[in-house]
Design a protein around this nucleic acid. Structure first.
Lengths: 341, 341
DNA sequence: CTGAAAGCGCTTACAG
DNA sequence: CTGAAAGCGCTTACAG
């Protein structure tokens, strides 16, 4: 069963070039330590045989893979795409290869993927958010694999993070909605269990609602999918006392809510305002465009890559950083209609 | 520089349990070949030490990784997301792990990623489309790594493929547009170089336009990004003789075109019809929803996984399959306004 | 500048 | 059912 990789080996190359395997290895890894004439002969031999080093063997001997692993909750939508792209570009610039796996927002899958990547020799790991079983952190420590968290910042966490303050960001957005005159605010949140970003955004929402002394309205929890956002929105609109503004845990939910509003004949923003979070491309595609929290995805990705590589290369013990977010006010939010409010 | 993975080894486990490394290995890989009492002792030792097998060593000894690699052109949008998700679910079901890399639509990056994945021991590879340098195929053959192409079908290609007929699909859509009465059709295509899906879609478009005896209109080529789709659309609308229908190479371009139409005050579909391709979620989010070609992403992903694993396990020499696509007629397409046409 | 040789941490016939 | 030992394909001190 299965294939036996049959490619040529270092030994084949060495024999053909009439040198030792050590010399071939040097030609490939530190060419300047081999005299030109020998090097040329070896490279010609490499070429002729179509030789590619066996990675497993190299890893075992050198204990280094120049591979970074990233486990993100989902590839189904673009939430992490832009940040990851920047992360990968920076990695590439520094000579590392990125391997990505997704956990479908399930902690046990994430743990499994972490093990898969670590045992495949990942030199470092990028994780999203701080919330996961302590055993995962124990494992990473025991394996002494540097790991960095992005998309979330938590000073007290076990891992270094390059992220932003989800709570403060959502608080600021909610304050803005209130400042525009809304008094009945509801929220559609992502699933909070195991997701600190979702949880912190809800907390930020509540902070602002409470400090304004407004009556509590529902926070509906639902998976980060368009269709779920749509359904949750419809449920909220069926309430006897309808919210005049619905704040969504991210742009995906916001787009779903907006779409459903249009489908059931509600005018956004005149009859109901809707906001998102993340500022992915989707937020500007929908019409009206979504008011949202802008997250510096590319900047975060690039900085995360730099810091993680520094950690991998022993140049840093881990320096956390909080990036600023800002509001993007667009057509989906306006003051409530006095006739409705 | 770099870390020395310092975890416990098989030897440590063996010593602690008072058995040989062979026995520990058996406990982990074929537990039924070890008597219960011994097994328990060994597993306790594994537990106590927090042992994880060194993947590289295992690969080298066993010549098998249970890892499948996929290289997709982009993770920036959802084009490949749903299919890849299904692919990964099926892989997981059969005990394989998926590692993903993206090529940014650049052939040289793809070649690099292929090498990275192969030398990391991928048992098999999923690639998108058939168009790439012959040297890549030579390499895969020499390394005897099974590879499968998805998203495109080509009977004459070197690799097995589980895909659909991009040309026929686009031809069918174009025929429908023509059948609705349009006579001035333009197209916004993705970049065709190195992308057989893009090229075949353009050919399908031309097939239908030619067979209807319509005058040639521009085919604009642009990267698959919302903003580029928007710009291309605006350019087309600036033509002296405006098209009444703009067919886009995929939904991303279609969404961009639609957005720009609204921004410049054009009524879709009354003044201009717009279509997409792929039927990703975005197509239903925008308003009006995009008429598009539905691609059976999940089915394709699942079938690709099954076939690739069969190839990896020597159960198949590679069986290609063409999947059916169908049209989804939605609000972005309607007959042209006689007053305009 | 180059080679001989040990060693990386596993798996797997081969014996017993 | 279990162990001793070879071997997987590299890298890297250590000599020369």
């Amino acid at each position: 069963m299965g294939r036996m990789r049959s490619g040529p080996t270092l030994d084949d190359v060495a024999r053909r070039a009439g040198v030792s395997t050590a010399t071939v290895s040097r030609c490939l890894n530190s060419p300047d330590r081999v005299v030109e004439e020998t090097r040329e002969r070896v490279l010609k031999s490499v070429e002729a045989l179509g030789y590619t080093p066996n990675f497993a063997a190299r890893v075992m001997a050198a204990k280094r893979t120049f591979t970074i692993g990233a486990i993100i909750p989902t590839m189904e939508n673009a939430i992490f795409a832009r940040g990851l792209q920047a992360f990968q570009e920076e990695l590439h610039r520094r000579g590392y290869t990125l391997l990505v796996a997704s956990s479908a927002y399930r902690p046990e899958v994430e743990a499994e993927q972490i093990r898969a990547l670590v045992s495949r020799g990942a030199d470092g790991l990028l994780l999203i958010g701080h919330e996961r079983p302590g055993t995962v952190y124990d494992y990473l420590e025991r394996q002494s694999v540097p790991a960095l968290v992005a998309w979330s910042h938590d000073a007290g966490a076990r891992l270094t993070s390059i992220g932003f303050d989800n709570r403060a960001a959502m608080r600021a957005l909610t304050r803005e909605v209130i400042a525009q005159g809304h008094r009945r605010l509801a929220m559609i949140s992502g699933v909070q269990a195991g997701n600190d970003r979702a949880r912190l955004r809800v907390e930020g929402f509540r902070d602002a609602v409470d400090e304004a002394g407004l009556a509590a309205m529902p926070v509906v929890e639902t998976p980060y999918e368009i269709e779920h956002g749509a359904q949750a929105f419809e449920d909220l609109m069926a309430l006897p006392l309808r919210p005049t503004a619905v704040l969504c845990g991210n742009d995906v939910l916001g787009a779903g809510a907006l779409r459903r509003a249009q489908d059931i004949g509600l005018d956004v923003p005149r009859e109901v305002s809707i906001t998102g979070f993340d500022d992915i491309e989707l937020a500007r595609i929908v019409s009206p465009a979504l008011t949202t929290v802008h997250v510096p995805h590319r900047d975060m990705g690039r900085k995360a890559a730099r810091e993680l590589i520094d950690m991998v290369e022993g140049k840093s013990q881990g320096r956390s950083e909080t990036l600023a977010t800002d509001l993007r006010l667009r057509g989906s939010l306006c003051p409530p209609d006095p006739a409705i409010g």
